[in-house]
Design a binder for these strands. Structure first.
Length: 505
RNA sequence: GAAUCGCUAGCUCAGUCGGUAGAGCACCGGACUUUUAAUCCGGGUGUCGCGGGUUCAAGUCCCGCGCGAUUCACCA
């Protein structure tokens, strides 16, 4: 089956150019005795960016005798008789090459004319010069064909814009659109910055199971699979929370994990079925410490890619300002015009929600706390544009969060919103094993009532809490969204190298 | 899940009222020692997303399906 698909694919995409290039390759081998795929190394001493920097001040029509040794992919080539210009790119930059017949020699020049195409990889020896027109150029003295491309590059000035091909054949996107490479370099720097900040606070990076028998730690539908040897159903993780708290119980101290979570839900511009989450847990800390850490992490990440001024979806934000704080009840008062402090019964709350047009969103059994959350999601969430900590979540919707001792129906929890989207979720971790068991029982009831995203009952986790979890502050941050907001990417697919795609029929 | 838009050469796109599938780049052959969207001469490379239907005739009209994008719904 798989082989069949591959061979079909291979043949169906053999267009005229590919056929010509394949024949050319065979002729290169037979006529020149040269196989472009046998080279294994090239001692590159200079990147194109370093060459650009070094010879920045070189004047037009000047040359520098220093020998340079570099390499890259030929992006365009202009062959004109006894001289040839080409643009070569590497991962750092792009530069013009100049081949002259009396500089590289007749034999190598003819080889170039006859065999070298756009897309090919060349090793280059030469020196810097600047043309009359001011273009920094490498005067090539020697070159070596390191590898050949037999599939043509996307068109040279429109590039590749077809979103479907860009996502399915990301390698073509990366070749044709260097700014895409920048986004993923920034992604890497942001994640490194997170690690540096966490480690500067003495936090240990750990790895916990992706495959397990129970997928807990969040309210979401998991991916299900089957382990043949064990003969059991297994699930892909939806969060790492419960494992990291077990590690705090196990006296590992401050721990964090940056890794992939999997949620079997819809795909849109904010959601990919696999996404990267950072979760961190600090013993002897609470949700206030996590607020400070969230600001520090995000600010440092922004600095690591060069600026605290960010723009997303046409909205500019200044991350140097302290993040705002608002409670869920305040947000509902401000944006839905409902004063929840006057609400005393569940029925009264539901009546208000129906009044606000949310009747179709309710089953009629909601508590006033569920209604509060509903009102926030319907009217408040989209208005939290400036980085804002949302506080005061009801206990009912926070099964892993410590209660506010002043008002046990609410918790010591926050969610951080930016541009109207959630980017972080944190709380003072519930460490009362009796309460935790009751919360899980409540979730199990909700599951039994048909809520297939209710939290799973994890007996071993309770066992761990029973062994004693210190007071702990914990937080999860959605890395893909952070990368989106810091790079201005409008779709999560633009910050994930190989986003989930449905196979073509 | 719904709506809207898109799918034509390797890439970017045009294709009128239903009447023999086009352009630029890329590619192939030729000329050319400072070009840079090189230029000049010659060459069009195609399952018009897939399948039906209407018609003398369908890239074009109708129906169904696929994939993608966006918005909404769902969902942390």
């Amino acid at each position: 089956m798989a082989e069949e698909v591959i061979s079909q694919d291979f043949n169906s995409e053999d267009n005229e150019v590919v056929r010509q290039r394949k024949e050319k390759l065979l002729r290169l081998r037979s006529e020149e005795g040269y196989d472009p795929y046998v080279n294994e190394t090239w001692d590159r001493k200079d990147t194109l960016a370093s060459i650009r920097e070094r010879f920045d001040t070189l004047q037009p029509e000047q040359e520098d005798g220093t020998e340079l040794k570099t390499a890259g992919r030929i992006m365009t080539i202009r062959k004109q008789g006894k001289a040839t210009f080409a643009d070569m790119a590497d991962e750092t930059s792009r530069i013009q090459l100049y081949f002259q017949i009396n500089t590289v020699g007749e034999k190598d020049y003819d080889f170039l004319k006859k065999w070298v195409d756009t897309g090919d990889w060349l090793g280059i020896v030469g020196h810097a010069c600047r043309t009359r027109r001011g273009e920094l150029t490498i005067m090539v003295t020697e070159y070596k064909l390191l590898s050949k491309a037999i599939r043509p590059l996307p068109e040279k000035w429109h590039g590749l814009t077809d979103t479907e091909i860009r996502y399915r054949k990301r390698y073509m996107d990366l070749i044709a659109n260097p700014e895409v490479r920048d986004v993923f370099r920034k992604r890497s720097r942001i994640i490194s910055s997170f690690r540096e900040t966490l480690e500067s606070h003495g936090t240990l990076e750990v790895e916990t199971p992706i495959l397990s028998v129970l997928a807990g730690g969040a309210n979401a539908r998991p991916f299900k699979t089957f382990h043949n040897a064990l003969g059991v159903d297994m699930y892909m993780r939806i969060a790492v929370e419960l494992y990291l708290k077990r590690l705090v119980v196990g006296m590992m101290g401050r721990v964090y994990e940056i890794g992939r979570n999997f949620r079997n839900e819809g795909i849109d511009t904010m959601h990919n079925p696999e996404f990267t989450m950072m979760e961190v847990y600090w013993p002897y800390a609470n949700y206030v410490d996590m607020m400070n850490l969230a600001e520090e992490l995000i600010r440092n990440a922004a600095k690591s890619i060069g600026t605290l001024e960010i723009e997303w979806n046409g909205i500019k934000l200044d991350l140097s300002k302290p993040f705002r704080k608002i409670t869920m009840r305040e947000a509902v008062k401000e944006f839905a015009g409902v004063d929840f402090d006057t609400v005393t019964s569940d029925e009264q709350a539901r009546a208000i929600a129906r009044d606000k047009g949310l009747g179709s969103e309710m089953t009629g059994h909601e508590s006033k706390f569920a209604v509060l959350n509903l009102l926030f999601e319907a009217f408040g969430e989209e208005n939290l544009i400036e980085p804002t900590f949302l506080l005061g979540h009801p206990t009912e919707i926070s099964p892993l969060s410590k209660r506010d001792p002043e008002n046990p129906d609410y918790t010591h929890r926050f969610e951080l919103f930016m541009f109207g989207k959630e980017v972080a979720n944190a709380f003072s971790e519930l460490n009362d094993p009796i309460d935790q068991r009751e919360r899980f029982e409540d979730q199990a009831r909700k599951k039994a009532e048909g809520d297939d995203e209710a939290h799973v009952f994890d007996e071993d986790f309770i066992n761990a809490i029973e062994a004693g979890l210190p007071p702990t502050g914990g937080m999860g941050i959605g890395m893909d969204r952070i990368v989106m907001f810091l790079t201005g990417a409008r779709s999560i697919r633009d910050v994930i190298l190989f986003p989930a795609m449905k196979p073509k029929a």
